[in-house]
Design a protein around this nucleic acid. Structure first.
Lengths: 242, 242
DNA sequence: CAGTGGTCTAGACCACGCC
DNA sequence: GCGTGGTCTAGACCACTGC
């Protein structure tokens, strides 16, 4: 492929190249080069090019039209769009609020069947476990239970997290490159323990979130179960018709 | 492929075959036949088999593990990936469930300030208003309150919607081309009226959705407020680190 | 080691949109 | 007609898992 190395799959490298172009050079509804042109320009097979384009489509960055081409998706309106970022600290700063994180618990456990499956590790593998309360402008916003595989974060100490964002520690202290985070969420009602910490009533609506974060070798480096106050979190998504 | 016809792509037909097996014969964490075995059994190339498996993975029906195999995903509620969701009817069909829509109400109203703002029309403009109950396999799933601008759907009758999906009517009967749908959602708890219709308790968790649909001239052609059972809907998105 | 999914190639033909 | 994305083949080698 000439301009790229081989530590990542070729289609992933192409995703990065095109994502850069989309973000920095192109406008919504601009057309991308055709698949055959990308094939030629980067010396790839069409299969590989299409893999990359499909990933960009899954990410919502482009839409494809049979017979016409592949186009940059419109970013789908900003405002309270929480789907563009996944760091609580970053989100709150962007909204002009002052974030605060209180570490309620920090320990190590061994993965049971559930965690082994979700984090793609073996049963019995060691994990860091932490519980954190996140607030903004002094108002409790969400409770997070986070699990990290010890193999990647051997030297992690509670103090590391007292004054830095988790993602900063992951990237700057442990040099793990975060590539993608998958997030699932569904409505629920507050369990008593969570309700107390969030300052809401038992049975108040909450949004449950499950986040899995991968590094550039496709290993799970973070698994977090969050409970967020429903009155503080709203998501926004755009989908394109094909 | 022998056992199948050619009206659908081969990988889609394989999706149907495997989805049937998953739903009717297999249990969570059961292993599916290997890709090479499927290749041989159905006379397909591995590329086509992998396309089908990827679709099943996107639908949340299976998960894949490098070096081990492809397995049936657990959980009764399949995660619905927002970035590829279109209509309720299509979504349920893709999951192999039988969708049904009951029209509870059909009338016309004049837009008040709120609807005028959300739908980008003038106060007093005429709107169709309908309330629909959506079910899958006989289980109530969500209640939708939908508003359509009369200017685009003059001849719309209740009967049009009795046996066709709203989006089909919009596109095929009124020739409005849907370009994009924006969706906002947040956790809530069931209001008494909705709880009754959905067959859940008052105060049970629900997901509130607000959807705005645009045609290719960027006019709002649909505005819908939905209330979905939390135990039936789960959403999934991916974030990229840049 | 054998068996699994993951990546990749170099083609082919089909279906769609548009001039 | 021509350029676009959509489907599909028949291979190849790599990377991971588990015995």
């Amino acid at each position: 492929m000439g301009t790229v190395s081989r530590k990542q799959p070729l289609y992933d490298q192409l995703v990065d190249i095109l994502r850069d172009k989309i973000v920095n050079e192109l406008k919504p509804n601009d057309m991308l080069p055709s698949e055959r042109e990308l094939t030629e320009r980067y010396g790839l097979s069409r299969t590989t090019v299409r893999l990359a384009l499909q990933e960009l489509e899954n990410l919502g960055l482009v839409y494809r039209r049979h017979g016409k081409g592949t186009f940059v998706a419109s970013s789908g309106t900003q405002a309270t769009n929480l789907s563009q970022t996944y760091s609580f600290t970053e989100q709150m700063r962007r909204l002009g609020r002052v974030p605060k994180t209180t570490i309620l618990e920090f320990s190590t456990i061994e993965a049971n069947k559930y965690y082994a499956l979700r984090m793609n590790v073996h049963i019995g593998d060691h994990l860091f476990k932490m519980k954190r309360l996140r607030s903004a402008d002094g108002v409790p916003m969400m409770v997070e239970r986070t699990f990290l595989p010890m193999r990647n974060f051997m030297a992690l100490k509670r103090e590391d997290l007292e004054h830095a964002a988790l993602y900063d520690v992951i990237e700057n202290v442990f040099h793990e490159k975060i590539r993608v985070a998958e997030e699932e969420f569904f409505a629920s009602i507050a369990r008593p323990e969570d309700a107390r910490m969030l300052g809401i009533g038992e049975g108040a609506p909450v949004l449950d979130l499950v986040r899995t974060t991968y590094n550039d070798r496709n290993e799970v480096i973070e698994f977090t179960l969050s409970v967020a106050r429903a009155d503080q979190f709203k998501y926004k998504i755009s989908h394109y018709r094909s």
